[in-house]
Nucleic acid binder design. Structure first.
Length: 560
RNA sequence: UGCCCCGUGGUGUAAUUGGCAACACGCCUGACUCUGGAUCAGGAAAGUCUAGGUUCGAGCCCUAGCGGGGCAGCCA
């Protein structure tokens, strides 16, 4: 028997193999229950999205359940704003936790009771050593630690002290509760890890109900246990913590999930740690957590990414145990692939060049048919106005073109998308020798859709009617960093690699009139340019703002 | 000089669990095209970190080495 899940599919990764095996041995009674346990101290990024998709995907594939749980055990870093953004992002990604949204802080009383239990077993003690002393006593990577002089306090005294810790009789850092394990363990996590520290701070949900807070190592397994999680999936850096996770649960003799670690996703040309992202936000390198250049879920959403694209990306990235840096091009592929099928086409000119069609009647206006999406004819078609004066893209005309350029050139012909073939008769320049206008003739027999054209031209370019197009702001984004791995060096070196040209604002792009009433979040493909969406933050009815999600693949500019 | 994890095309993941390395992205050709997009057809690119060993047979197992990552928060 191979690695097949309950639906008979081939195992997607090593975690599915573990679960397949658990199903075979009936380890969990056929049950699968996963969770996503974020700390509400920042916004979610694409790496979290991968974890969400993994955990939710497992629950879905095995007909199990998926919880959203806030690991809110550190009042000093956590905020309600983050809780709200995380809920929004998880829902948006399509990970359905139904009514199972939990908070570790709701378990504090239970955790406290369990701590008392460990004290009674002689497996935990109150330590009076200072933070510095504890560090010294811990030993080093190569030398064992030594036991705290307070390690052998009586159970009675520990019980009393711990209760008084809770009551608030001590100041921050004055005492901690530690597990009594092994000060000489080669795994430093087992050298009497701290379970509770005193923090007199207001918790975003508990207010001032508590002044002692559980540490991650103590709390996490308990949370999983309480929720009867079967597979507790986390990232590689917790691998060394697994023996501790197991130790607590074993000592308590309570329900014991299995912790499984996998390698987090890294993307080149960006940073992924919450700390660094927070720094970019706080020091205004970007315009908030949802800046479209950020690898955050909210940034990607504002950039124009769809949940489907993100899910496909994380699926295609795979799950394994080796450190990885994925190429951003895989992410870009996922959104192009999705939007190609979904996005309505439109014409927009970013850097306009005026074209006058000299043989076109002065006041004539034609309504031309344009297909909304050649990949999906159910999306229908629309009319676009055409008249004597139009604008084309500056880059679609060259006076001295290189070989292989098949757009407009002096004396040359090109098709205007959904309109006519035009020929460049004259180039008008200003006194600075800049091209300011083209005078072209059109061939009435070449109208699109009529089939009357005998001509064939190599190039087709997009355009907008001068009389009908409206002005909009377009924001072009580039990668936030200039090097592939900006965080490879020292802590703050990544700031040295910020790409100062990562945002280009075009304030007067010209857009075809049919888009005038589009709404924030609407997505389009501007033909030949890329995918764009209406910005949800700065766009107004009077002045639409479009974000470029990603450019179209371009095998021409790459050549030259 | 400790402990733990990991080394497969440029990138990421796979290989029926020991049977002559596949998929995706990217890249390059060509076809088609009223988007230099999409689509279609083809191609280059790793002999699996190294050296031994077990075996008829090793990317999968064993040993040693090398390389990368993690661990000395009262962060998670």
């Amino acid at each position: 028997m191979g690695a097949n899940n309950s639906e008979g599919h081939k195992a997607k990764n090593f975690i599915y193999e573990i679960i397949d095996n658990d199903m075979k041995t009936n380890k969990w009674g056929g049950r699968v229950h996963t969770r996503f346990p974020p700390e509400p101290n920042g916004y979610l990024h694409i790496g979290h999205a991968a974890s969400i998709c993994l955990n939710y995907g497992i629950a879905r594939d095995y007909n199990g359940k998926f919880n959203l749980r806030f690991d809110d055990t550190n009042p000093e870093k956590e905020e309600t704003e983050y809780v709200e953004s995380i809920i929004e992002d998880v829902k948006w990604l399509g990970a359905d936790f139904e009514d199972r949204i939990f908070y570790a802080s709701d378990y504090f009383e239970q955790m406290y009771n369990w701590a008392v239990e460990l004290i009674k077993k002689g497996k935990a003690y109150v330590d009076d050593l200072s933070a510095e002393e504890i560090r010294e006593y811990r030993g080093t990577l190569t030398e064992p630690g030594k036991e705290s002089p307070y390690r052998s306090r009586s159970i009675k005294e520990n019980l009393d002290l711990f209760e008084r810790m809770r009551k608030g009789e001590f100041k921050n850092g004055e005492k901690v509760l530690r597990a009594k394990i092994d000060m000489s363990s080669p795994n430093l996590n087992l050298r009497d890890p701290i379970m509770y520290r005193i923090v007199h701070a207001e918790h975003h949900r508990q207010g001032n109900a508590w002044c002692i807070y559980p540490t991650y190592d103590w709390a996490h397994g308990l949370e999983d246990s309480i929720e009867r999680i079967t597979h507790s999936i986390c990232t590689l850096e917790f691998e060394n913590h697994r023996p501790l996770y197991d130790w607590f649960l074993n000592e308590l003799g309570i329900y014991h999930p299995q912790q499984i670690e996998f390698a987090r996703i890294n993307l080149n040309y960006t940073v992924m740690s919450k700390r660094k992202l927070l720094k970019l936000v706080q020091e205004k390198y970007v315009d908030g957590w949802d800046d479209p250049r950020m690898p955050t879920v909210s940034g990607l959403r504002r950039r124009g990414y769809t949940p489907e694209a993100i899910r496909n990306f994380t699926d295609n990235s795979g799950i394994a145990k080796r450190d990885k840096v994925s190429d951003i091009s895989l992410l870009e592929f996922s959104i192009r692939d999705d939007l190609n099928k979904k996005a309505q086409r439109a014409m927009a000119v970013l850097k306009p060049l005026k074209v006058v069609i000299i043989n076109y009647p002065e006041n004539k206006i034609e309504e031309l048919d344009a297909i909304n999406n050649p990949e999906d004819h159910s999306m229908g078609s629309r009319k676009i106005p055409f008249c004597k004066e139009i604008y084309i893209e500056q880059t679609d005309f060259m006076e001295n073109p290189p070989k292989g350029y098949y757009r407009l050139v002096p004396g040359g012909e090109v098709r205007l998308r959904y309109a006519y073939i035009i020929k460049c008769e004259e180039v008008i320049k200003n006194d600075k020798n800049e091209i300011v206008e083209l005078r072209c003739s059109y061939d009435p027999d070449t109208k699109s859709g009529t089939g009357t054209s005998k001509k064939k031209v190599k190039g087709t370019i997009h355009w907008v009617s001068a009389k009908h197009a409206f002005e909009a702001e377009v924001r072009l984004y580039d990668r936030l960093f200039t090097v592939e791995t900006p965080d490879a060096g020292k802590e703050n070196d990544f700031l040295d690699f910020i790409n100062s040209n990562s945002l280009e604002i075009i304030s007067n792009a010209l857009i075809e009139p049919s888009l005038k009433n589009s709404n924030p979040g609407d997505k389009f493909q501007f033909e030949r340019l890329g995918y764009f969406c209406v910005d949800t933050k700065y766009s107004t009815k009077e002045k639409l703002v479009f974000n470029r999600t990603v450019g179209l693949k371009d095998s021409w500019t790459k050549k030259v």
